[in-house]
Amino acid sequence: MGNAKSGAVSKELLQDLKLNTKFTEAEIAQWYGNFQKQCPTGRISPAEFEAIYSKFFPESDAKTYAQHVFRSFDTNDDGTLDFKEYIVALHMTSSGKTALKLEWAFSLFDVDKNGYITKAEVREICQAIFKLIPRDKQAELPSDENTPEKRADKLWSFFEKGENERIAEGEFIKGVTENKDALRLIQYEPVM
């Protein structure tokens, strides 16, 4: 991965990231320095990622969700995140552009990476999301989404698909964009 062991980002990687993210050269260099300090090997393992992720959800079980997030970020399927995957993921999840975030959300829900989402995959991700919600907050949820199964059923109903049908990325993005409840159901953000 470029100059993974040295202290600077390779020019090739820097140009690639400047073209494909919102980050400036200075920001990329700063992220790289921090990445190198936190991950001297130049890679983040699933266990390291889970540990980092769990800090954002101290009152919850973030392990399953972190595993799915990690899978969606590991674009080359090598079982680790390198600096480029890390920065692209950071860009996609923090850019502010809804379309980018929804593209990432689709990849999160597409558990088997076949380009489609099934109801079973929606259920799997809703179960992982539900584990992020602290028990006291779960008790406050509306009755039609107070279990992972109900949450998945409610989300799936927005797409008007049968039990064994599937959703393509465009359908997913359109369905979530057109419905605030669907957008809320595909995520959980802790109150800080």
Rank of each mutant, 00 (worst) to 15 (best):
V9A: 13
L13H: 08
L14G: 03
L14R: 03
L14V: 12
Q15F: 14
L19V: 07
T21L: 02
T24I: 00
T24H: 09
E25N: 07
A26P: 04
Q30Y: 03
W31Q: 02
F35C: 06
F35M: 02
F35Q: 00
Q36P: 05
Q36R: 14
Q38W: 13
I44Q: 04
I44S: 02
S45A: 05
S45D: 01
P46M: 10
A47P: 00
E48A: 06
E48S: 07
F49W: 01
Y53N: 01
Y53S: 01
K55T: 06
K55E: 04
F57I: 08
P58S: 06
P58C: 03
E59R: 00
F70R: 00
S72R: 07
F73V: 11
T75N: 05
N76I: 01
D77V: 12
D78R: 08
L81T: 14
D82Q: 12
K84G: 03
K84F: 01
E85A: 09
Y86H: 02
Y86R: 05
L90Y: 10
H91R: 10
H91N: 08
M92E: 11
T93S: 09
S94W: 15
S95V: 07
K97W: 11
T98P: 11
T98D: 07
A99M: 15
D110Q: 05
K113S: 14
G115Q: 10
Y116T: 15
A120S: 15
R123C: 15
I129V: 14
K131N: 10
R135M: 11
R135G: 01
D136P: 05
K137N: 11
K137M: 10
Q138Y: 02
A139D: 15
E140W: 12
E140Y: 15
L141K: 04
P142M: 10
S143E: 07
S143V: 13
E145R: 05
N146E: 15
T147K: 08
P148A: 06
E149T: 08
K150S: 08
R151I: 07
D153V: 03
L155W: 00
L155R: 00
L155I: 10
W156K: 01
W156I: 03
W156Y: 02
S157I: 04
G162H: 01
R166D: 04
I167L: 14
E171D: 14
F172N: 05
K174D: 15
G175R: 06
E178R: 13
E178Q: 08
N179C: 02
D181N: 08
L183Q: 14
L183R: 10
R184M: 15
Q187H: 04
E189T: 13
